[in-house]
Design a protein around this nucleic acid. Structure first.
Length: 105
DNA sequence: CAATGATCCCGTCAAGTTCG
DNA sequence: CGAACTTGACGGGATCATTG
């Protein structure tokens, strides 16, 4: 097993409400800077168009993976928190049962 | 130390979705 | 409706750990 991971669900102390994926319309340099996509795409020859498309997709894939990774990390945090909650509730229930038992006896 | 397996990250393609 | 965007799937290279 290659434990490359430096991840682990460290607290991040986050309030993890909803780990939502989907386009938050977040970062992504889409409309941004560099190649003024508009004019370029029209005047470019097919191979330039292809190159441009590949480049765009390359960046998109990177961003997509980044978001997915973030999403998974968020889910992992959520699992950790819920497991803790569950544990606490089980203990609480157990002590309530105890109290009840003593009263009955 | 070489072979092997596991895992990660990347680039590309294809199909689906969104938007002007 | 077409162009741009998003994402799952696939194949390949790099790196690390284990094993004989």
């Amino acid at each position: 097993m290659a434990v490359t991971g430096d991840e682990t669900e460290t607290g991040t102390s986050g309030d993890l409400t909803a780990c939502q994926l989907q386009n938050t319309g977040s970062s992504l340099p889409q409309g941004g800077a560099e190649t003024s996509t508009q004019g370029f795409v029209k005047s470019a020859n097919p191979s330039q168009k292809r190159e441009h498309r590949l480049m765009k997709n390359r960046e998109a894939a990177r961003e997509c993976r980044r978001k997915k990774k973030e999403y998974v990390k968020c889910l992992e945090n959520r699992v950790a928190v819920l497991e803790n909650q569950n544990k606490t509730l089980i203990e609480e229930l157990s002590s309530i049962k105890d109290i009840y038992r003593h009263k009955v006896e």
